[in-house]
Computed example of a mutant assay.
Amino acid sequence: MWLNKDQITPSALRSYRKALLHASPNHVVIDNLFDNQKLDTVISVLQQEAHWQSQKHTYEALYVDNTKWLQTQQEDRFVKRDYWQPKANNTDDTTTIALDFLTYLRSNEFMALLSRIFKVSLTDINVANPAINTNYFRLAATDFVKLHADDSPGREVCMLLYLNKNWSNCANNSSDNSKGGELIFKGTNNTPIRIAPLYNRCVLFDPSSTGSEHWVNPVTTGSKQQYRYNITSWYWSE
């Protein structure tokens, strides 16, 4: 079982629901939602360089090629990062584990859990290609995710799960121990919300709620070979 049973008790779910409703934007941060040992096996797969490809988005178009990217002004580029794409002829037992976790995150069991927290019926019945809506991503010091919104018609829940061990939980980037990479919600009343990308930290939010626009602080590890890893997953109602 991928989930940590201690974090999905009836009382825990009630607390998540309460936190979600009282936060602006509507979001909840859940630490240790998943089984740590099973996530460790996933992390080992993510270290394999061959499985990563570059991804670039502009405010005008998603998934642009290098030619289009170079033609786009710097201020109109909003995502540069890597996404996980295992090669079809290079799938071993460890890679299968990572794929299994992505499959689980789109399973009826997991979507039912999210449905209970958000009080909405989530389903992939009308999603053309569910698999592309759940994947691993990584950011290096040269990458970025700028201010954007994740709201789309019917999209009810966004999930971020961080897979970074020994990452700083500093309140700001002034500490020498900070590695950056914090998720920043725009928030309300000029009060941004900063969330450190700690290992096995899950952030769930309503992308249509006020202040849910967000960006990622630059990674400041000082090395191009040190990455901030996460899973991003989007869910729709019927």
Rank of each mutant, 00 (worst) to 15 (best):
P207A: 04
Q74F: 11
Y136M: 06
V145E: 08
T94N: 12
N26W: 05
A12Q: 11
W236K: 02
T220H: 03
D65R: 04
T94D: 15
N32Q: 13
L21K: 10
G154I: 02
T210C: 03
V45E: 05
F137K: 05
R106V: 05
T91Y: 05
A98N: 04
N133F: 12
N108F: 03
A141I: 15
Q7K: 15
T142C: 08
P207M: 02
D150R: 07
F34Y: 13
N126F: 02
K224T: 14
D92R: 01
P25W: 07
T232N: 14
P207L: 01
N108W: 07
A196K: 13
D65S: 03
D151V: 12
A140P: 03
I132K: 12
T103Q: 09
A88R: 01
A128C: 01
D31P: 10
E109G: 05
F118W: 06
R194F: 15
H27I: 04
Q53T: 15
F101Y: 08
K68W: 14
Q48Y: 05
L39S: 03
N90W: 04
T232K: 08
D206M: 00
H51I: 10
T58M: 05
Q55T: 09
N200M: 06
S175G: 13
L204S: 02
P86E: 04
Y83F: 14
L39M: 01
G211I: 00
I184M: 02
S115P: 00
S54F: 10
C202D: 02
H27C: 11
S107Y: 11
R155K: 13
L13K: 11
S233V: 00
Y136G: 08
R17V: 07
L204W: 00
T191D: 06
R77A: 03
P218N: 07
V45N: 02
L102Q: 08
S175R: 06
G211L: 00
T41K: 15
Q48P: 07
G154A: 01
C170P: 12
S15A: 06
P10G: 03
K87V: 00
Y136F: 14
L102K: 01
F101A: 09
Q226R: 12
I117W: 00
A171R: 13
Q85R: 13
D176P: 12
D93Q: 14
K68L: 06
M1L: 05
N133C: 06
I231N: 04
T221K: 06
T210F: 01
V127I: 12
I97V: 10
K119E: 13
T191F: 04
L204I: 06
P197S: 02
A50R: 15
E156F: 06
L204A: 12
I193S: 14
Q71M: 14
S168V: 02
P153K: 04
N164K: 06
Q74R: 14
Q85G: 00
A149M: 10
K18V: 05
N126A: 10
S24A: 13
I184C: 11
V127K: 10
Q71L: 06
R155H: 05
N172D: 15
N32G: 10
G180T: 07
Q53G: 08
T9Y: 04
F78W: 13
G180Y: 11
F118H: 02
I30P: 07
N173K: 09
S209E: 07
S15H: 01
L147A: 15
V127C: 00
L3V: 00
D6I: 09
R81P: 09
R14F: 07
E60Q: 11
L183D: 07
P218V: 09
S175Y: 03
